[in-house]
Structures are given as structure tokens and as C-alpha cells.
């Protein structure tokens, strides 16, 4: 296919692609930008730098885990290799982040960028991951009104909107704190956080 492309057709396609991208970016279609973000292996605490730099800066001192008031931050063991040994991560199904930002303030090397606790800053700067709903499991999508996740969401109506039967609709404003995954009454959870790089 590619070899039969004429030069003009190629240029036209390129222009069309650029145009679409520009249109999407200009109209605030952040879906493309979101899709381009890399998925992390684990859910990192708020304010974490991009994975590579995070692993370099983190000195594994565990202070973030020590001050976490929700005992949400855990330390990786040997299971994921030496690269991740003793690095902080969260398992939102066990304990989710309540966005107090204490971990970002005690990090000695800036592997977690300091972020203030104010609602607007948290909403603007925290991107730990993004909630993804499994519609085949979600009670609300089976027309059995549930709505637990939206009640757990720290930014209801902004990060998560609801449809009929309180069906959760996750928006781009989702910070990935995992409170919805923690709260989900379905076993296994019908809403999960996919860790992405901010």
C-alpha cells in the first residue's frame, strides 16, 4: 500500500493529518493528547515526574509512605525487579489517595513535585491516572442504579458525570485518585484506574 502512494497523495494525507490534529488540539479535544500519554507500570503518588525521571530521582527513602495519612502509599518489593524496588505506588482498591498532598511536600529530591492542597491546584496539577469503567460489570450500566463511585469522587460533576441510572462518565478532569475504585461495590471492581504519566 505504502509503496504505491504517490508523492502528492502522501503530502495531501500529511496535510489532512496535521489539519485534523490541529483542529482537535484547537477545539480542546484532549482525547488525542490523553491517548498519546504513556501508561505507567504502577499508580504512583500524586505529583510524580514522568516514570523514567521519577525512577532516577526517587532515592527510595519511603518518606512519602511514612506520612501518607491514608496508608495508601505502599513500597514495591522484589517482585517487579530491582528497578522498582522500594519505590512508592498505590493500590487504589485497597486504599486510595485522598489528595492531601503531604507526600509531595516531604519528598527530598523532587521526584514528587510539591503541590499545594488547594482544590484548584490539585485539579490542575494532579494526574496520577484515569478511571476506566467496565460497562459489562458496572451495576448502573446493567440498569441497576448504583452511583457509589460518583459519591466517592472528590470532584463530582467535574471529574465524573452521571447519566441515566447514575451511570458514571469519566471526564478528562479525572485526577486518578482511585476513590471510585476503592468504593465500587462490585467484586471485582467495575471501575479501575489506569496509571498514566502527567
Amino acid at each position: 500500500m505504502v509503496s504505491t502512494l504517490k508523492r502528492r497523495a502522501f503530502l495531501q494525507m500529511g496535510a489532512a493529518f496535521m489539519g485534523t490534529a490541529a483542529f482537535c488540539l484547537a477545539t480542546g479535544g484532549r482525547a488525542i493528547a490523553q491517548a498519546a500519554k504513556r501508561i505507567r507500570p504502577f499508580l504512583r503518588p500524586p505529583g510524580a515526574l514522568p516514570e523514567e525521571e521519577f525512577l532516577q530521582r526517587c532515592i527510595r527513602c519511603a518518606r512519602c509512605a511514612q506520612v501518607c495519612p491514608n496508608t495508601a502509599i505502599r513500597l514495591k518489593g522484589f517482585g517487579s525487579g530491582l528497578k522498582h524496588l522500594n519505590t512508592p505506588y498505590l493500590r487504589p482498591r485497597d486504599q486510595a489517595c485522598m489528595l492531601c498532598m503531604k507526600c509531595t511536600q516531604v519528598c527530598p529530591t523532587g521526584a514528587l513535585r510539591p503541590i499545594s492542597v488547594a482544590d484548584e491546584t490539585v485539579r490542575a496539577e494532579v494526574r496520577m491516572g484515569r478511571a476506566v469503567v467496565d460497562k459489562s460489570m458496572c451495576y448502573s450500566y446493567q440498569k441497576r442504579t448504583c452511583g457509589v463511585c460518583i459519591r466517592a469522587c472528590p470532584f463530582p460533576g467535574v471529574a465524573m458525570k452521571t447519566g441515566l441510572y447514575e451511570q458514571p462518565i469519566v471526564t478528562d478532569a479525572c485526577v486518578g485518585c482511585g476513590l471510585c475504585e476503592r468504593a465500587c461495590i462490585h467484586i471485582p471492581q467495575a471501575i479501575r484506574i489506569v496509571p498514566v504519566e502527567a
Binding site: I59, R63, Q66, V67
Partner: peptide, 22 residues
């Protein structure tokens, strides 16, 4: 609650009322 993080860490890195030791 705020005082509980005034001292944190071990000998690799600890903070004492805002002063950091590495």
C-alpha cells in the same frame, strides 16, 4: 495531624521541622 509529619524518615533521609538531612 500536621505535627505528625514534622519529623519523618530514617538515616538515609529525614526531615526535622523543615530541615532536610540526606
Amino acid at each position: 495531624a500536621a505535627s505528625s509529619i514534622a519529623i519523618a524518615g530514617g538515616f538515609g533521609s529525614f526531615s526535622l521541622f523543615g530541615i532536610t538531612f540526606l
